[in-house]
Design a protein around this nucleic acid. Structure first.
Length: 268
DNA sequence: GACCAGGGCCGGC
DNA sequence: GCCGGCCCTGGT
Protein backbone atom coordinates (compact mmCIF):
# COMPACT_ATOMS: atom_id res chain seq x y z
CA UNK A 1 0.00 0.00 0.00
CA UNK A 2 1.39 3.38 -0.97
CA UNK A 3 0.14 6.96 -0.75
CA UNK A 4 0.78 9.52 -3.45
CA UNK A 5 -0.41 12.98 -4.47
CA UNK A 6 -1.81 13.53 -7.94
CA UNK A 7 -3.05 16.74 -9.53
CA UNK A 8 -5.38 16.84 -12.53
CA UNK A 9 -6.49 13.28 -11.79
CA UNK A 10 -10.03 12.02 -11.17
CA UNK A 11 -10.36 8.27 -10.76
CA UNK A 12 -14.16 8.26 -11.04
CA UNK A 13 -14.14 10.08 -14.36
CA UNK A 14 -11.38 7.86 -15.69
CA UNK A 15 -13.40 4.83 -14.63
CA UNK A 16 -16.45 6.05 -16.56
CA UNK A 17 -14.62 7.59 -19.49
CA UNK A 18 -15.18 4.71 -21.90
CA UNK A 19 -11.50 3.97 -22.53
CA UNK A 20 -11.13 1.11 -20.03
CA UNK A 21 -13.65 -1.62 -19.37
CA UNK A 22 -12.11 -3.60 -16.53
CA UNK A 23 -12.20 -0.86 -13.92
CA UNK A 24 -15.10 -0.39 -11.53
CA UNK A 25 -16.13 1.55 -8.45
CA UNK A 26 -16.27 -0.66 -5.35
CA UNK A 27 -17.75 2.06 -3.16
CA UNK A 28 -17.66 5.86 -3.02
CA UNK A 29 -14.09 6.88 -3.86
CA UNK A 30 -12.71 3.34 -4.00
CA UNK A 31 -11.95 1.58 -7.27
CA UNK A 32 -10.57 -1.69 -8.60
CA UNK A 33 -8.78 -2.21 -11.89
CA UNK A 34 -7.39 -5.27 -13.66
CA UNK A 35 -4.72 -4.54 -16.24
CA UNK A 36 -1.91 -6.61 -17.75
CA UNK A 37 -2.76 -9.46 -15.41
CA UNK A 38 -2.49 -7.34 -12.25
CA UNK A 39 -5.18 -6.30 -9.82
CA UNK A 40 -5.07 -2.91 -8.12
CA UNK A 41 -7.33 -1.01 -5.75
CA UNK A 42 -7.25 2.77 -5.65
CA UNK A 43 -8.86 5.07 -3.11
CA UNK A 44 -9.05 8.74 -3.92
CA UNK A 45 -9.76 11.67 -1.67
CA UNK A 46 -9.03 14.99 -3.30
CA UNK A 47 -5.48 14.88 -4.60
CA UNK A 48 -4.55 11.98 -2.32
CA UNK A 49 -4.41 8.51 -3.79
CA UNK A 50 -3.91 5.26 -1.91
CA UNK A 51 -2.81 2.35 -4.11
CA UNK A 52 -2.75 -1.29 -3.07
CA UNK A 53 0.65 -1.96 -4.60
CA UNK A 54 4.28 -1.71 -3.59
CA UNK A 55 6.42 1.28 -4.39
CA UNK A 56 8.30 -0.84 -6.91
CA UNK A 57 5.11 -1.90 -8.74
CA UNK A 58 3.98 1.70 -8.81
CA UNK A 59 7.22 2.92 -10.31
CA UNK A 60 7.57 0.10 -12.80
CA UNK A 61 3.96 -0.16 -13.97
CA UNK A 62 1.05 1.82 -12.50
CA UNK A 63 2.67 5.23 -12.68
CA UNK A 64 2.99 4.84 -16.41
CA UNK A 65 -0.42 3.13 -16.74
CA UNK A 66 -2.19 6.12 -15.19
CA UNK A 67 0.00 8.60 -17.11
CA UNK A 68 1.05 10.20 -13.83
CA UNK A 69 4.36 11.16 -15.41
CA UNK A 70 2.61 13.63 -17.70
CA UNK A 71 1.85 17.31 -17.20
CA UNK A 72 -1.86 17.73 -17.84
CA UNK A 73 -1.90 21.36 -16.78
CA UNK A 74 0.31 22.06 -19.79
CA UNK A 75 -2.20 20.26 -22.01
CA UNK A 76 -5.06 22.33 -20.68
CA UNK A 77 -3.15 25.53 -21.33
CA UNK A 78 -2.96 24.58 -25.02
CA UNK A 79 -6.72 24.98 -25.44
CA UNK A 80 -7.42 28.09 -27.49
CA UNK A 81 -9.25 30.81 -25.53
CA UNK A 82 -11.66 31.29 -28.44
CA UNK A 83 -12.43 27.56 -28.55
CA UNK A 84 -15.35 27.93 -26.19
CA UNK A 85 -16.66 24.42 -26.68
CA UNK A 86 -13.35 22.79 -25.74
CA UNK A 87 -12.96 25.14 -22.79
CA UNK A 88 -16.33 23.94 -21.51
CA UNK A 89 -15.71 20.25 -22.30
CA UNK A 90 -12.30 20.34 -20.62
CA UNK A 91 -13.70 21.99 -17.51
CA UNK A 92 -16.41 19.35 -17.32
CA UNK A 93 -14.14 16.39 -18.02
CA UNK A 94 -11.10 17.57 -16.13
CA UNK A 95 -9.25 14.78 -14.34
CA UNK A 96 -9.50 12.23 -17.14
CA UNK A 97 -6.17 10.90 -18.33
CA UNK A 98 -5.39 8.78 -21.35
CA UNK A 99 -4.19 5.51 -19.85
CA UNK A 100 -1.43 3.31 -21.22
CA UNK A 101 -3.32 0.06 -21.61
CA UNK A 102 -2.09 -3.32 -22.73
CA UNK A 103 -2.42 -3.73 -26.48
CA UNK A 104 -4.03 -7.16 -26.79
CA UNK A 105 -6.80 -6.50 -24.28
CA UNK A 106 -7.47 -3.04 -25.72
CA UNK A 107 -7.66 -4.41 -29.24
CA UNK A 108 -10.36 -6.90 -28.27
CA UNK A 109 -12.21 -4.33 -26.16
CA UNK A 110 -12.54 -1.93 -29.07
CA UNK A 111 -13.49 -4.62 -31.55
CA UNK A 112 -16.33 -5.33 -29.13
CA UNK A 113 -17.11 -1.61 -28.85
CA UNK A 114 -18.41 -1.17 -32.39
CA UNK A 115 -22.15 -0.49 -32.64
CA UNK A 116 -22.33 -1.20 -28.91
CA UNK A 117 -22.67 0.66 -25.63
CA UNK A 118 -20.33 0.94 -22.65
CA UNK A 119 -22.23 -1.24 -20.13
CA UNK A 120 -22.44 -4.04 -22.67
CA UNK A 121 -18.77 -3.75 -23.59
CA UNK A 122 -17.85 -4.09 -19.90
CA UNK A 123 -20.11 -7.11 -19.56
CA UNK A 124 -18.63 -8.91 -22.54
CA UNK A 125 -15.06 -8.18 -21.40
CA UNK A 126 -15.84 -9.47 -17.93
CA UNK A 127 -17.45 -12.64 -19.26
CA UNK A 128 -14.51 -13.38 -21.56
CA UNK A 129 -12.11 -12.95 -18.64
CA UNK A 130 -14.11 -15.00 -16.16
CA UNK A 131 -14.72 -17.85 -18.56
CA UNK A 132 -11.45 -18.05 -20.46
CA UNK A 133 -8.85 -16.03 -18.54
CA UNK A 134 -6.23 -17.33 -16.15
CA UNK A 135 -7.38 -17.46 -12.53
CA UNK A 136 -5.24 -15.37 -10.22
CA UNK A 137 -5.25 -14.10 -6.64
CA UNK A 138 -5.12 -10.45 -5.60
CA UNK A 139 -3.44 -8.99 -2.51
CA UNK A 140 -6.48 -9.98 -0.43
CA UNK A 141 -6.24 -13.55 -1.71
CA UNK A 142 -9.46 -13.08 -3.70
CA UNK A 143 -9.83 -14.62 -7.14
CA UNK A 144 -9.65 -12.45 -10.25
CA UNK A 145 -9.10 -13.27 -13.90
CA UNK A 146 -6.45 -12.10 -16.32
CA UNK A 147 -7.62 -11.30 -19.83
CA UNK A 148 -7.60 -14.41 -22.07
CA UNK A 149 -4.67 -15.03 -24.39
CA UNK A 150 -4.96 -15.15 -28.20
CA UNK A 151 -4.56 -18.94 -28.02
CA UNK A 152 -7.53 -19.36 -25.72
CA UNK A 153 -9.77 -16.97 -27.69
CA UNK A 154 -9.02 -18.49 -31.09
CA UNK A 155 -10.26 -21.86 -29.82
CA UNK A 156 -13.75 -20.69 -28.86
CA UNK A 157 -16.82 -22.09 -30.61
CA UNK A 158 -19.64 -19.99 -32.05
CA UNK A 159 -21.76 -20.89 -29.03
CA UNK A 160 -19.06 -19.90 -26.55
CA UNK A 161 -18.55 -16.55 -28.26
CA UNK A 162 -22.29 -15.98 -28.41
CA UNK A 163 -22.60 -16.75 -24.69
CA UNK A 164 -20.41 -13.68 -23.99
CA UNK A 165 -22.92 -11.39 -25.70
CA UNK A 166 -20.58 -10.60 -28.58
CA UNK A 167 -23.18 -10.85 -31.34
CA UNK A 168 -21.71 -10.60 -34.83
CA UNK A 169 -18.37 -9.44 -33.36
CA UNK A 170 -17.51 -12.97 -32.24
CA UNK A 171 -16.03 -13.92 -35.59
CA UNK A 172 -13.87 -10.79 -35.60
CA UNK A 173 -12.44 -11.70 -32.22
CA UNK A 174 -11.73 -15.31 -33.12
CA UNK A 175 -10.04 -14.32 -36.36
CA UNK A 176 -7.93 -11.63 -34.69
CA UNK A 177 -6.95 -14.07 -31.96
CA UNK A 178 -5.88 -16.59 -34.59
CA UNK A 179 -3.85 -13.93 -36.39
CA UNK A 180 -2.01 -13.09 -33.17
CA UNK A 181 -1.50 -16.72 -32.13
CA UNK A 182 -0.22 -17.75 -35.56
CA UNK A 183 2.11 -14.78 -35.88
CA UNK A 184 0.29 -13.16 -38.81
CA UNK A 185 -0.20 -10.23 -36.47
CA UNK A 186 2.53 -9.18 -34.06
CA UNK A 187 1.29 -7.02 -31.17
CA UNK A 188 4.79 -6.46 -29.81
CA UNK A 189 5.99 -5.21 -33.19
CA UNK A 190 3.32 -2.50 -33.23
CA UNK A 191 4.80 -0.81 -30.18
CA UNK A 192 7.81 0.36 -32.16
CA UNK A 193 5.83 1.76 -35.11
CA UNK A 194 4.88 5.40 -35.62
CA UNK A 195 1.20 6.29 -35.41
CA UNK A 196 0.22 6.09 -39.08
CA UNK A 197 2.05 2.79 -39.63
CA UNK A 198 0.54 1.22 -36.50
CA UNK A 199 -2.92 2.32 -37.63
CA UNK A 200 -2.37 0.77 -41.03
CA UNK A 201 -1.27 -2.54 -39.51
CA UNK A 202 -4.25 -2.64 -37.16
CA UNK A 203 -6.68 -2.06 -40.02
CA UNK A 204 -5.50 -5.26 -41.70
CA UNK A 205 -7.28 -7.17 -38.95
CA UNK A 206 -10.77 -8.54 -39.61
CA UNK A 207 -13.20 -6.32 -37.69
CA UNK A 208 -10.85 -3.36 -37.26
CA UNK A 209 -11.71 -0.24 -39.25
CA UNK A 210 -10.56 3.36 -38.98
CA UNK A 211 -12.33 4.19 -35.74
CA UNK A 212 -11.29 1.10 -33.80
CA UNK A 213 -7.69 1.45 -35.04
CA UNK A 214 -7.63 5.07 -33.81
CA UNK A 215 -8.89 3.97 -30.40
CA UNK A 216 -6.14 1.39 -30.07
CA UNK A 217 -3.50 3.89 -31.19
CA UNK A 218 -4.72 6.32 -28.53
CA UNK A 219 -5.61 4.09 -25.60
CA UNK A 220 -2.93 1.40 -25.92
CA UNK A 221 -0.09 2.78 -28.06
CA UNK A 222 -0.41 6.25 -26.53
CA UNK A 223 -0.27 8.09 -29.83
CA UNK A 224 -1.92 11.24 -28.52
CA UNK A 225 -2.67 12.59 -31.99
CA UNK A 226 -4.94 9.62 -32.75
CA UNK A 227 -8.46 11.04 -33.03
CA UNK A 228 -11.25 8.46 -33.01
CA UNK A 229 -14.48 9.80 -34.51
CA UNK A 230 -17.52 7.95 -33.21
CA UNK A 231 -21.14 9.09 -33.16
CA UNK A 232 -20.54 11.40 -30.18
CA UNK A 233 -17.47 13.12 -31.62
CA UNK A 234 -19.15 13.32 -35.01
CA UNK A 235 -21.98 15.24 -33.36
CA UNK A 236 -19.54 17.53 -31.57
CA UNK A 237 -17.68 18.26 -34.82
CA UNK A 238 -20.93 19.10 -36.61
CA UNK A 239 -22.25 21.33 -33.84
CA UNK A 240 -19.11 23.13 -32.74
CA UNK A 241 -16.46 22.77 -35.45
CA UNK A 242 -18.31 23.40 -38.67
CA UNK A 243 -15.19 25.18 -39.99
CA UNK A 244 -12.94 22.25 -39.05
CA UNK A 245 -11.26 21.05 -35.88
CA UNK A 246 -7.98 22.92 -35.15
CA UNK A 247 -5.71 19.88 -35.38
CA UNK A 248 -2.59 21.96 -36.02
CA UNK A 249 -2.98 23.96 -32.83
CA UNK A 250 -3.66 20.82 -30.83
CA UNK A 251 -0.84 18.76 -32.29
CA UNK A 252 0.38 16.23 -29.73
CA UNK A 253 -2.81 16.41 -27.67
CA UNK A 254 -5.72 16.16 -30.12
CA UNK A 255 -6.59 12.67 -28.94
CA UNK A 256 -6.64 13.76 -25.31
CA UNK A 257 -8.97 16.64 -26.12
CA UNK A 258 -11.10 14.24 -28.13
CA UNK A 259 -11.53 12.17 -24.98
CA UNK A 260 -12.56 15.19 -22.91
CA UNK A 261 -15.14 16.10 -25.56
CA UNK A 262 -16.34 12.49 -25.75
CA UNK A 263 -16.95 12.32 -22.01
CA UNK A 264 -18.71 15.68 -22.06
CA UNK A 265 -21.02 14.68 -24.91
CA UNK A 266 -21.66 11.25 -23.41
CA UNK A 267 -23.05 12.81 -20.24
CA UNK A 268 -24.83 15.87 -21.59
C1' DG B 1 -45.14 -4.05 -28.97
C1' DA B 2 -42.52 -1.22 -32.32
C1' DC B 3 -38.69 1.37 -33.01
C1' DC B 4 -34.17 3.22 -32.35
C1' DA B 5 -29.38 3.92 -31.03
C1' DG B 6 -25.17 2.33 -29.22
C1' DG B 7 -17.17 4.63 -28.92
C1' DG B 8 -18.65 0.69 -36.86
C1' DC B 9 -17.26 -2.75 -40.10
C1' DC B 10 -17.76 -5.85 -44.03
C1' DG B 11 -18.97 -6.99 -48.59
C1' DG B 12 -21.21 -6.02 -52.86
C1' DC B 13 -21.90 -2.66 -56.11
C1' DG C 1 -16.89 5.69 -52.48
C1' DC C 2 -21.55 4.49 -51.01
C1' DC C 3 -24.90 1.66 -48.74
C1' DG C 4 -27.53 -2.31 -46.79
C1' DG C 5 -27.10 -5.57 -43.22
C1' DC C 6 -25.64 -6.95 -38.90
C1' DC C 7 -26.20 -9.53 -33.03
C1' DC C 8 -28.10 -7.81 -29.13
C1' DT C 9 -29.92 -4.95 -25.35
C1' DG C 10 -31.68 -1.08 -22.98
C1' DG C 11 -34.43 2.95 -23.44
C1' DT C 12 -38.49 5.45 -25.22
Amino acid sequence: MIQIQAKDFDMQKICNSGQCFRMWELEEGRFAVIASGSYLEVSQSGESLALSCSKEEFQSFWRSYFALDEDYAAIRSKILPEDLYMQEAAAYSWGIRILRQELWETLIAFIISQQNNIPRIRKSMQMLAEKYGEEKRNFKDEIFYAFPTPESLMALSDEELKSCGLGYRGKYIRDTAAAAAEGRFDPAGLLALPYEDAKKELMKLYGVGVKVAECICLFALHHCDAFPIDTHIQRVLERHYADGFPFEQYKGAAGILQQLAFYHDLNN
